[in-house]
Design a protein around this nucleic acid. Structure first.
Lengths: 188, 188
DNA sequence: ACCTGAACACCGTTCAAGT
DNA sequence: ACCTGAACACCGTTCAAGT
Protein backbone atom coordinates (compact mmCIF):
# COMPACT_ATOMS: atom_id res chain seq x y z
CA UNK A 1 0.00 0.00 0.00
CA UNK A 2 2.80 2.33 0.88
CA UNK A 3 4.88 1.86 -2.23
CA UNK A 4 3.17 0.48 -5.32
CA UNK A 5 5.43 -1.32 -7.76
CA UNK A 6 3.95 -0.18 -11.01
CA UNK A 7 4.75 3.32 -12.15
CA UNK A 8 1.12 4.16 -13.01
CA UNK A 9 0.04 3.09 -9.54
CA UNK A 10 2.66 5.29 -7.93
CA UNK A 11 1.52 8.19 -10.06
CA UNK A 12 -2.09 7.63 -9.06
CA UNK A 13 -1.17 7.44 -5.42
CA UNK A 14 0.85 10.63 -5.54
CA UNK A 15 -1.87 12.43 -7.43
CA UNK A 16 -4.49 11.29 -4.92
CA UNK A 17 -2.40 12.56 -2.04
CA UNK A 18 -1.83 15.92 -3.69
CA UNK A 19 -5.51 16.42 -4.43
CA UNK A 20 -6.52 15.16 -0.98
CA UNK A 21 -4.20 17.61 0.70
CA UNK A 22 -5.85 20.45 -1.23
CA UNK A 23 -9.37 19.19 -0.58
CA UNK A 24 -8.81 18.75 3.14
CA UNK A 25 -7.38 22.25 3.32
CA UNK A 26 -10.33 23.67 1.42
CA UNK A 27 -13.28 21.67 2.73
CA UNK A 28 -11.98 20.10 5.91
CA UNK A 29 -11.45 16.44 6.68
CA UNK A 30 -15.06 15.55 5.77
CA UNK A 31 -14.45 16.45 2.13
CA UNK A 32 -16.01 14.15 -0.46
CA UNK A 33 -13.71 11.26 -1.35
CA UNK A 34 -15.56 10.80 -4.62
CA UNK A 35 -14.66 14.37 -5.45
CA UNK A 36 -11.03 13.72 -4.54
CA UNK A 37 -10.97 10.74 -6.91
CA UNK A 38 -12.63 12.78 -9.64
CA UNK A 39 -10.19 15.66 -9.32
CA UNK A 40 -7.30 13.21 -9.23
CA UNK A 41 -8.57 11.73 -12.48
CA UNK A 42 -8.91 8.18 -11.15
CA UNK A 43 -11.82 5.86 -10.48
CA UNK A 44 -13.28 5.81 -7.00
CA UNK A 45 -12.15 2.19 -6.68
CA UNK A 46 -8.55 3.28 -7.16
CA UNK A 47 -8.81 5.66 -4.25
CA UNK A 48 -10.13 2.87 -2.06
CA UNK A 49 -7.43 0.49 -3.24
CA UNK A 50 -4.71 2.87 -2.11
CA UNK A 51 -6.47 4.17 0.96
CA UNK A 52 -9.08 1.79 2.35
CA UNK A 53 -10.47 4.41 4.74
CA UNK A 54 -10.59 8.17 5.02
CA UNK A 55 -8.43 7.86 8.10
CA UNK A 56 -5.78 5.98 6.09
CA UNK A 57 -5.61 8.89 3.68
CA UNK A 58 -5.38 11.39 6.49
CA UNK A 59 -2.79 9.30 8.28
CA UNK A 60 -0.56 9.22 5.25
CA UNK A 61 -0.77 12.98 4.93
CA UNK A 62 -0.03 13.50 8.60
CA UNK A 63 2.35 10.67 9.40
CA UNK A 64 5.36 12.94 9.56
CA UNK A 65 3.63 15.46 11.79
CA UNK A 66 3.80 13.37 14.94
CA UNK A 67 7.41 12.51 14.20
CA UNK A 68 8.20 16.19 13.84
CA UNK A 69 6.46 16.99 17.10
CA UNK A 70 8.39 14.25 18.82
CA UNK A 71 11.62 15.70 17.51
CA UNK A 72 10.49 19.16 18.61
CA UNK A 73 10.01 17.85 22.15
CA UNK A 74 13.48 16.31 22.14
CA UNK A 75 15.02 19.55 20.89
CA UNK A 76 13.16 21.69 23.39
CA UNK A 77 14.31 19.46 26.23
CA UNK A 78 17.64 21.29 26.12
CA UNK A 79 16.10 24.68 26.88
CA UNK A 80 16.89 26.54 30.08
CA UNK A 81 13.33 27.39 31.02
CA UNK A 82 11.48 24.08 31.11
CA UNK A 83 8.07 25.63 31.50
CA UNK A 84 8.53 27.84 28.46
CA UNK A 85 9.81 24.86 26.52
CA UNK A 86 6.64 22.99 27.44
CA UNK A 87 4.51 25.96 26.38
CA UNK A 88 6.25 26.15 23.03
CA UNK A 89 5.74 22.47 22.46
CA UNK A 90 2.08 22.47 23.41
CA UNK A 91 1.55 25.46 21.13
CA UNK A 92 2.96 23.49 18.23
CA UNK A 93 0.73 20.56 19.02
CA UNK A 94 -2.30 22.85 19.02
CA UNK A 95 -1.22 24.55 15.79
CA UNK A 96 -0.67 21.20 14.12
CA UNK A 97 -4.06 19.88 15.21
CA UNK A 98 -5.67 23.00 13.80
CA UNK A 99 -4.28 22.65 10.28
CA UNK A 100 -7.52 21.44 8.73
CA UNK A 101 -11.09 21.86 9.80
CA UNK A 102 -12.05 18.56 11.38
CA UNK A 103 -8.47 17.60 12.09
CA UNK A 104 -8.76 18.06 15.87
CA UNK A 105 -11.34 15.29 15.75
CA UNK A 106 -8.94 12.95 13.95
CA UNK A 107 -6.14 13.77 16.34
CA UNK A 108 -8.42 13.16 19.30
CA UNK A 109 -9.20 9.74 17.86
CA UNK A 110 -5.58 8.93 17.04
CA UNK A 111 -4.50 9.80 20.57
CA UNK A 112 -7.03 7.41 22.02
CA UNK A 113 -7.22 4.61 19.52
CA UNK A 114 -4.56 2.00 20.14
CA UNK A 115 -5.36 0.35 16.82
CA UNK A 116 -4.67 3.46 14.79
CA UNK A 117 -1.84 3.15 12.33
CA UNK A 118 -0.63 6.42 13.77
CA UNK A 119 -0.46 4.90 17.21
CA UNK A 120 3.26 4.20 17.19
CA UNK A 121 4.37 7.68 16.10
CA UNK A 122 1.64 9.08 18.32
CA UNK A 123 2.99 7.21 21.29
CA UNK A 124 6.54 8.26 20.58
CA UNK A 125 5.38 11.86 20.52
CA UNK A 126 3.49 11.38 23.75
CA UNK A 127 6.54 9.95 25.46
CA UNK A 128 8.77 12.81 24.32
CA UNK A 129 6.15 15.31 25.47
CA UNK A 130 5.89 13.47 28.76
CA UNK A 131 9.62 13.87 29.28
CA UNK A 132 9.28 17.58 28.68
CA UNK A 133 6.44 17.80 31.17
CA UNK A 134 8.27 15.82 33.83
CA UNK A 135 11.37 17.97 33.48
CA UNK A 136 9.30 21.06 34.21
CA UNK A 137 7.63 19.29 37.09
CA UNK A 138 11.00 18.31 38.56
CA UNK A 139 12.09 21.92 38.23
CA UNK A 140 9.06 22.79 40.32
CA UNK A 141 7.56 25.21 37.82
CA UNK A 142 4.63 23.06 36.67
CA UNK A 143 1.93 21.37 38.72
CA UNK A 144 2.96 17.87 39.74
CA UNK A 145 -0.49 16.41 39.13
CA UNK A 146 -0.60 17.32 35.43
CA UNK A 147 -0.41 14.44 32.96
CA UNK A 148 0.67 14.43 29.34
CA UNK A 149 -2.66 12.87 28.38
CA UNK A 150 -4.52 15.81 29.88
CA UNK A 151 -2.21 18.29 28.18
CA UNK A 152 -2.71 16.69 24.78
CA UNK A 153 -6.47 16.61 25.31
CA UNK A 154 -6.37 20.28 26.27
CA UNK A 155 -4.25 21.26 23.25
CA UNK A 156 -6.56 19.36 20.92
CA UNK A 157 -9.61 20.93 22.55
CA UNK A 158 -8.11 24.38 22.14
CA UNK A 159 -7.47 23.72 18.45
CA UNK A 160 -11.08 22.61 18.11
CA UNK A 161 -12.46 25.60 20.00
CA UNK A 162 -10.56 27.90 17.63
CA UNK A 163 -11.91 26.32 14.44
CA UNK A 164 -13.97 28.71 12.35
CA UNK A 165 -13.46 31.51 14.85
CA UNK A 166 -12.88 35.06 13.65
CA UNK A 167 -9.18 34.87 14.51
CA UNK A 168 -8.23 31.25 15.22
CA UNK A 169 -4.57 31.91 15.95
CA UNK A 170 -5.41 34.65 18.46
CA UNK A 171 -8.03 32.56 20.25
CA UNK A 172 -5.67 29.59 20.39
CA UNK A 173 -2.97 31.84 21.88
CA UNK A 174 -5.30 33.17 24.58
CA UNK A 175 -6.62 29.75 25.55
CA UNK A 176 -3.09 28.34 25.64
CA UNK A 177 -2.19 31.21 27.92
CA UNK A 178 -4.96 30.25 30.35
CA UNK A 179 -3.87 26.63 30.21
CA UNK A 180 -0.22 27.44 30.93
CA UNK A 181 -1.14 29.76 33.77
CA UNK A 182 -3.24 26.93 35.10
CA UNK A 183 -0.27 24.59 35.00
CA UNK A 184 2.22 27.05 36.41
CA UNK A 185 3.67 27.06 39.89
CA UNK A 186 5.48 30.06 41.32
CA UNK A 187 5.98 33.39 39.57
CA UNK A 188 3.33 34.28 37.06
CA UNK B 1 -44.17 26.20 13.78
CA UNK B 2 -44.05 26.36 17.55
CA UNK B 3 -47.67 25.55 18.22
CA UNK B 4 -49.63 23.76 15.51
CA UNK B 5 -53.38 24.29 15.58
CA UNK B 6 -54.57 20.86 14.65
CA UNK B 7 -54.42 18.17 17.29
CA UNK B 8 -52.80 15.62 14.97
CA UNK B 9 -50.07 18.08 14.08
CA UNK B 10 -49.37 18.73 17.72
CA UNK B 11 -49.19 15.01 18.38
CA UNK B 12 -46.76 14.55 15.50
CA UNK B 13 -44.60 17.37 16.71
CA UNK B 14 -44.47 16.03 20.25
CA UNK B 15 -43.72 12.55 19.01
CA UNK B 16 -40.92 13.83 16.78
CA UNK B 17 -39.35 15.71 19.67
CA UNK B 18 -39.53 12.68 21.96
CA UNK B 19 -37.94 10.40 19.39
CA UNK B 20 -35.34 13.01 18.44
CA UNK B 21 -34.30 13.42 22.06
CA UNK B 22 -33.72 9.67 22.30
CA UNK B 23 -31.91 9.48 18.98
CA UNK B 24 -29.61 12.36 19.76
CA UNK B 25 -28.79 10.79 23.12
CA UNK B 26 -28.08 7.45 21.48
CA UNK B 27 -26.36 8.39 18.24
CA UNK B 28 -25.30 11.98 18.77
CA UNK B 29 -26.49 15.07 16.96
CA UNK B 30 -25.64 13.59 13.55
CA UNK B 31 -28.33 10.93 13.91
CA UNK B 32 -30.38 10.15 10.80
CA UNK B 33 -33.41 12.39 10.51
CA UNK B 34 -35.09 9.84 8.26
CA UNK B 35 -34.73 7.35 11.06
CA UNK B 36 -36.22 9.84 13.52
CA UNK B 37 -39.23 10.30 11.24
CA UNK B 38 -39.57 6.54 10.82
CA UNK B 39 -39.44 5.87 14.54
CA UNK B 40 -41.89 8.69 15.16
CA UNK B 41 -44.26 7.05 12.69
CA UNK B 42 -44.52 10.07 10.39
CA UNK B 43 -43.42 10.84 6.85
CA UNK B 44 -40.09 12.52 6.34
CA UNK B 45 -41.91 15.53 4.94
CA UNK B 46 -43.71 15.98 8.24
CA UNK B 47 -40.45 16.20 10.09
CA UNK B 48 -39.24 18.88 7.69
CA UNK B 49 -42.50 20.76 7.97
CA UNK B 50 -42.13 21.04 11.73
CA UNK B 51 -38.36 21.43 11.80
CA UNK B 52 -36.92 22.80 8.57
CA UNK B 53 -33.33 22.06 9.64
CA UNK B 54 -31.52 19.75 12.01
CA UNK B 55 -30.49 22.81 13.97
CA UNK B 56 -34.13 23.81 14.39
CA UNK B 57 -34.87 20.45 15.95
CA UNK B 58 -31.87 20.71 18.22
CA UNK B 59 -32.73 24.27 19.13
CA UNK B 60 -36.21 23.29 20.21
CA UNK B 61 -34.80 20.53 22.39
CA UNK B 62 -32.25 22.85 23.95
CA UNK B 63 -34.04 26.16 24.06
CA UNK B 64 -34.61 26.01 27.79
CA UNK B 65 -30.99 25.10 28.51
CA UNK B 66 -29.58 28.55 27.85
CA UNK B 67 -32.37 30.11 29.87
CA UNK B 68 -31.55 27.80 32.75
CA UNK B 69 -27.87 28.66 32.53
CA UNK B 70 -28.74 32.33 32.51
CA UNK B 71 -30.82 31.87 35.64
CA UNK B 72 -27.99 29.85 37.22
CA UNK B 73 -25.64 32.75 36.65
CA UNK B 74 -28.09 35.16 38.26
CA UNK B 75 -28.52 32.88 41.26
CA UNK B 76 -24.79 32.33 41.66
CA UNK B 77 -24.19 36.07 41.61
CA UNK B 78 -25.30 36.13 45.24
CA UNK B 79 -22.52 33.81 46.40
CA UNK B 80 -19.79 34.97 48.74
CA UNK B 81 -16.87 33.55 46.80
CA UNK B 82 -17.18 35.01 43.33
CA UNK B 83 -14.46 32.86 41.83
CA UNK B 84 -16.07 29.67 43.07
CA UNK B 85 -19.40 30.91 41.77
CA UNK B 86 -17.81 31.40 38.35
CA UNK B 87 -16.29 27.93 38.49
CA UNK B 88 -19.64 26.37 39.30
CA UNK B 89 -21.27 28.20 36.46
CA UNK B 90 -18.63 27.32 33.89
CA UNK B 91 -18.86 23.70 35.02
CA UNK B 92 -22.57 23.71 34.31
CA UNK B 93 -21.99 25.22 30.89
CA UNK B 94 -19.47 22.48 30.09
CA UNK B 95 -21.76 19.75 31.41
CA UNK B 96 -24.66 21.10 29.38
CA UNK B 97 -22.61 21.27 26.20
CA UNK B 98 -21.55 17.66 26.75
CA UNK B 99 -25.05 16.23 26.93
CA UNK B 100 -25.00 14.70 23.45
CA UNK B 101 -22.13 13.66 21.25
CA UNK B 102 -21.78 16.43 18.71
CA UNK B 103 -23.51 18.98 20.89
CA UNK B 104 -20.36 20.97 21.64
CA UNK B 105 -20.23 21.66 17.92
CA UNK B 106 -23.77 23.02 17.90
CA UNK B 107 -23.12 25.14 20.94
CA UNK B 108 -19.96 26.51 19.37
CA UNK B 109 -22.02 27.48 16.34
CA UNK B 110 -24.86 28.97 18.38
CA UNK B 111 -22.43 31.10 20.38
CA UNK B 112 -21.00 32.55 17.21
CA UNK B 113 -23.92 32.71 14.82
CA UNK B 114 -25.90 35.89 15.24
CA UNK B 115 -28.62 34.52 13.00
CA UNK B 116 -29.24 31.46 15.14
CA UNK B 117 -32.70 31.25 16.60
CA UNK B 118 -30.95 30.54 19.87
CA UNK B 119 -29.06 33.78 19.63
CA UNK B 120 -31.31 35.74 21.96
CA UNK B 121 -31.29 33.22 24.81
CA UNK B 122 -27.64 32.63 24.08
CA UNK B 123 -26.89 36.29 24.41
CA UNK B 124 -28.86 36.60 27.62
CA UNK B 125 -26.84 33.74 29.05
CA UNK B 126 -23.62 35.35 27.91
CA UNK B 127 -24.54 38.61 29.57
CA UNK B 128 -25.40 36.93 32.87
CA UNK B 129 -22.16 34.97 32.72
CA UNK B 130 -20.30 38.16 31.94
CA UNK B 131 -21.71 39.76 35.08
CA UNK B 132 -20.46 36.79 37.10
CA UNK B 133 -17.02 37.11 35.55
CA UNK B 134 -16.80 40.83 36.12
CA UNK B 135 -17.83 40.46 39.76
CA UNK B 136 -14.94 38.06 40.33
CA UNK B 137 -12.62 40.39 38.46
CA UNK B 138 -13.70 43.34 40.60
CA UNK B 139 -13.07 41.19 43.68
CA UNK B 140 -9.56 40.75 42.34
CA UNK B 141 -9.64 36.96 42.32
CA UNK B 142 -9.84 36.43 38.56
CA UNK B 143 -7.55 37.77 35.84
CA UNK B 144 -8.74 41.12 34.54
CA UNK B 145 -8.00 40.27 30.91
CA UNK B 146 -10.34 37.27 30.77
CA UNK B 147 -13.45 37.65 28.60
CA UNK B 148 -16.73 35.79 28.75
CA UNK B 149 -16.33 34.83 25.10
CA UNK B 150 -13.03 33.12 25.86
CA UNK B 151 -14.52 31.36 28.88
CA UNK B 152 -17.43 30.02 26.89
CA UNK B 153 -15.10 28.89 24.12
CA UNK B 154 -12.95 27.15 26.71
CA UNK B 155 -15.92 25.44 28.37
CA UNK B 156 -17.22 24.24 25.01
CA UNK B 157 -13.76 23.03 24.03
CA UNK B 158 -13.45 21.12 27.29
CA UNK B 159 -16.80 19.45 26.70
CA UNK B 160 -15.61 18.50 23.22
CA UNK B 161 -12.27 17.18 24.44
CA UNK B 162 -14.10 14.94 26.90
CA UNK B 163 -16.43 13.40 24.32
CA UNK B 164 -15.93 9.67 23.95
CA UNK B 165 -13.20 9.63 26.57
CA UNK B 166 -12.95 6.79 29.05
CA UNK B 167 -14.34 8.96 31.85
CA UNK B 168 -15.77 12.16 30.35
CA UNK B 169 -16.88 13.69 33.64
CA UNK B 170 -13.47 13.17 35.23
CA UNK B 171 -11.58 14.61 32.25
CA UNK B 172 -13.93 17.59 32.13
CA UNK B 173 -13.32 18.17 35.84
CA UNK B 174 -9.54 18.08 35.45
CA UNK B 175 -9.51 20.40 32.44
CA UNK B 176 -11.85 22.82 34.21
CA UNK B 177 -9.47 22.76 37.14
CA UNK B 178 -6.59 23.83 34.88
CA UNK B 179 -8.74 26.53 33.36
CA UNK B 180 -9.79 27.94 36.71
CA UNK B 181 -6.25 27.88 38.03
CA UNK B 182 -5.29 29.71 34.88
CA UNK B 183 -7.87 32.39 35.58
CA UNK B 184 -7.14 32.70 39.26
CA UNK B 185 -5.28 35.52 40.97
CA UNK B 186 -3.95 35.20 44.49
CA UNK B 187 -4.19 32.11 46.70
CA UNK B 188 -4.37 28.85 44.85
C1' DA C 1 -0.79 -5.85 -10.48
C1' DC C 2 -3.77 -2.53 -10.92
C1' DC C 3 -7.85 0.22 -12.65
C1' DT C 4 -12.74 1.06 -13.55
C1' DG C 5 -17.36 2.24 -12.68
C1' DA C 6 -21.83 0.12 -11.98
C1' DA C 7 -24.33 -1.38 -8.00
C1' DC C 8 -26.00 -1.15 -3.33
C1' DA C 9 -27.56 0.97 0.62
C1' DC C 10 -27.85 4.73 2.68
C1' DC C 11 -28.35 10.14 3.26
C1' DG C 12 -30.74 15.30 3.29
C1' DT C 13 -34.11 17.93 1.15
C1' DT C 14 -38.00 19.32 -1.84
C1' DC C 15 -42.48 19.32 -3.59
C1' DA C 16 -46.69 17.67 -6.14
C1' DA C 17 -50.44 15.15 -4.80
C1' DG C 18 -53.41 14.02 -1.52
C1' DT C 19 -56.96 14.32 2.79
C1' DA D 1 -53.99 22.97 7.59
C1' DC D 2 -51.42 19.32 7.43
C1' DC D 3 -49.48 14.75 5.84
C1' DT D 4 -47.22 11.63 2.56
C1' DG D 5 -43.64 9.52 0.01
C1' DA D 6 -41.62 9.55 -4.58
C1' DA D 7 -37.94 12.05 -6.69
C1' DC D 8 -33.48 14.22 -6.97
C1' DA D 9 -28.84 14.73 -6.08
C1' DC D 10 -25.62 13.49 -3.50
C1' DC D 11 -22.75 10.17 -0.32
C1' DG D 12 -19.36 5.85 1.22
C1' DT D 13 -18.11 1.40 0.03
C1' DT D 14 -17.71 -3.02 -2.50
C1' DC D 15 -16.67 -5.97 -6.16
C1' DA D 16 -17.04 -8.22 -10.81
C1' DA D 17 -15.08 -7.25 -15.02
C1' DG D 18 -11.54 -5.64 -17.38
C1' DT D 19 -6.36 -4.51 -19.08
Amino acid sequence: MTDPKRADARRNRDQLLAVARESFAEHGTATSLREVARRAGVGIGTLYRHFPTREALLETLLSDRFDTLRQDAVDLAGEQDQRTALLHWISRVAAGAGTYRGLPESVRTALRDHDSRLHDSCDAMRRAGGDLLRAAQRAGTVRADATIEDLLAAATGIAWASENSADPAALTARLLDYLMHGLAIGDR
